[in-house]
Amino acid sequence: MQEILQVTISGLATGAIYAMVAMGFTLLWQTTSTINFAQGEFVMLPAFLMLGGIVVLDLPLAVAFVGALLISAALLGAAFKRAIIDPMIRHGVLPLAIATIGLTLALKNGVKAIYGAEAHPFPHPFPVEIWRVLGVAFSSYDIAVIASVAAVVFALNRFLNGTMTGRSMQAVAQNPEAAVVLGIDVKRLILYTFVVNAALAAAAALLVTPVYLFKFDLGESLGLKAFYAAIIGGFNQMRGALVGGLIVGVLENLSAVYFAPAYKDAVALGLFVLVILFRPEGLLGREEARRV
């Protein structure tokens, strides 16, 4: 029983990071019907910026994180929307998805050209210790990751439901035409969504890079798992992405420990296929009808 608890906590920590990246997928989908296949690289780039701040400018991690957060918001939020989304969106979902795949390659190879293809160490933002509670050993880092993601989700929820801007963003997500009629500045609020997505990615980078180590392809598997998680939970529901991420993280860990580590990566894919076959809207998603 103690062991299952340990494995579940560890899986929740991994899943929480998937969830944070997956929530970005759903945010962009809800407001602009964008599937951002560069989502994994949106995590890699802030990690690269943080590492640059630490190694080149000798900044403390906290300061490097704030700097990376601001630059990410500008580059991966505002500039991404203006340079890629705005000109491509009128051509439909597919060209836009292909454009984001192109962006993936550009970001990966750009960072590789600047910083090389080797892995680099990244400092832990929290102490790495073992905490024993009622005879069960927990990693302090796992607990800190879960608490951090919970705090981010709580803050985001408060922002979306407790502020006028947040409620306006939800209105834009639910019905952009009606939002315009109500006098909401839709373009500005869509921009905010992209900025929030970039901030989520930067926060995920801070938590995941110490475990994965920094490398130009850091975002590859993370982006893919987050995409699976968003589909599993429901691509049009943020809470769906959250639940999807946690489910994938926990099931991956349980299957690796009690079945075989070699099949760990197949868990998310297997769940993804099952959901697509039997509940295409996702576990918590709602059915969508589209005009053709």
């Binding site: 180590l213 690796a256 420990v257 580590p261």
Partner: peptide
Amino acid sequence: STEPGQVDFSAVVTR
């Protein structure tokens, strides 16, 4: 068994 390029070793260590 682990995969080349594997990034998450939590399950391996638990096992």
